[in-house]
Simulated scan of single mutants.
Amino acid sequence: MVMRWLVFFVVVSSTARALTAVVAPKETLRSLFVGVRDPVLADPVTKSPFLERTLRMVGGDPETTFVSPTAVYGTKQNAYLDLVDPKQQPPSFEDLGVSLRRFLARSPSVRVQTDTFRSPLTAFLYERGWRQNFERNGFPGPDKEFAEAKEFFGDVGVLVDLSCGTGLMTRRFLKQLPETRIIAADYSEAMLLETRRRIDSRLPDLVRVDAAQLPFQTSSVDAIHAGAAMHCWPRLEDALAEIHRALTPEGGKFFATTFLTGALGTSL
């Protein structure tokens, strides 16, 4: 009788361990798809953390979706996360007639400061003469600008390269700050795609943002870099207020270079 009980106990115990071994991987896998809260990214309107993140596999490539009370935001072109408020989205290129009318309705400053950089041609030319030409206007050059920014920031946990362009500085931050979470952010889809194309090392978080409505939680970012960018922000005051809000209250740092008298036909 005793022997039968012992055998039964061993069988049940082994079965329980087997069931646990089966369930645990399923729970681990499920945790990758739902219920993950990012400590930095937020709804650009409410500034609250996203309620849910889901991950779908599309042809082998990951696709992320963030759900908030105001909208659903997702990955575009398998390259970047679009976190621009849908109400602030620029004209679509799908309907040329409608897009042209909406484009002409935008103010001249917005057309020049913002829409110029959404062009794939501008993204293509940016590191092929466009950015290098800034040195004629007093900029010290990318290498010296980066050295000054890196010295100013020191060791930081989260760094946002705002208006990252083609990733000119993003690539340098990735190489020199291996322990830092780098978020490359820009309003231009073309620039983000060019940044993705040029990076062959570890990838940063690529995020499409509106500088005047940043999708970052309050006091969640240690450092923000904006190289040769502020003169391209049509809502400069709002953008600076957003930067102040997103930076950590103790030790948060903002490093920027810009034109003093404006550029691209605009003025500060």
Rank of each mutant, 00 (worst) to 15 (best):
W5G: 12
F8M: 11
F8E: 11
F9R: 13
V11E: 00
L19A: 15
V22W: 12
V23A: 12
E27K: 15
L29P: 06
L29C: 08
G35E: 00
V36S: 09
D38Y: 03
L41R: 09
L41S: 11
A42S: 00
D43P: 00
V45G: 06
V45W: 00
S48Q: 14
L51W: 03
L51I: 02
T54C: 07
L55I: 14
M57S: 14
G59N: 13
G60D: 05
D61A: 10
P62G: 03
E63K: 06
T64R: 12
S68R: 01
S68I: 00
T70F: 04
A71W: 06
V72T: 15
V72L: 10
K76Q: 14
Q77A: 15
Q77N: 15
Q77P: 00
D82N: 08
L83F: 11
D85E: 05
K87A: 13
Q88N: 14
Q88I: 07
Q89H: 04
P91D: 01
S92M: 00
G97Q: 13
G97P: 02
L100K: 07
R102D: 09
F103C: 01
F103G: 00
L104W: 06
R106Q: 08
Q113Y: 01
Q113V: 00
T116A: 11
T116S: 12
S119H: 00
S119M: 10
P120Q: 05
P120G: 09
L121F: 12
A123N: 03
A123E: 06
Y126N: 09
R131H: 13
R131F: 13
Q132M: 10
E135W: 05
N137Y: 15
N137V: 07
G138K: 03
P142D: 07
P142K: 09
A147E: 15
A147I: 07
E148G: 02
K150E: 12
E151R: 14
F152R: 02
V158T: 15
C164W: 04
G167S: 12
L168N: 11
M169Y: 13
M169T: 01
M169Q: 13
M169I: 07
T170D: 09
T170I: 08
F173H: 01
L174V: 07
K175H: 09
Q176D: 15
L177A: 11
P178I: 07
I182E: 02
A185L: 09
A185S: 14
D186M: 11
D186S: 14
A190S: 15
M191G: 08
R196L: 13
R197T: 05
R198G: 11
S201C: 06
S201W: 02
R202N: 03
R202S: 11
R202T: 05
D205F: 07
L206K: 10
V209A: 03
D210L: 06
A211K: 04
P215Q: 03
P215H: 05
P215W: 00
Q217E: 10
S219E: 13
S219N: 15
S220L: 06
A223L: 08
G227S: 14
C232K: 00
C232T: 10
L236F: 07
D238W: 01
A241D: 10
E242A: 04
H244T: 08
R245E: 06
R245T: 05
A246E: 09
T248H: 12
P249E: 06
G252K: 03
G252A: 01
K253N: 06
F255A: 09
F255D: 04
T257D: 09
F259P: 08
L260P: 11
T261I: 03
G265R: 10
G265H: 04
T266I: 01
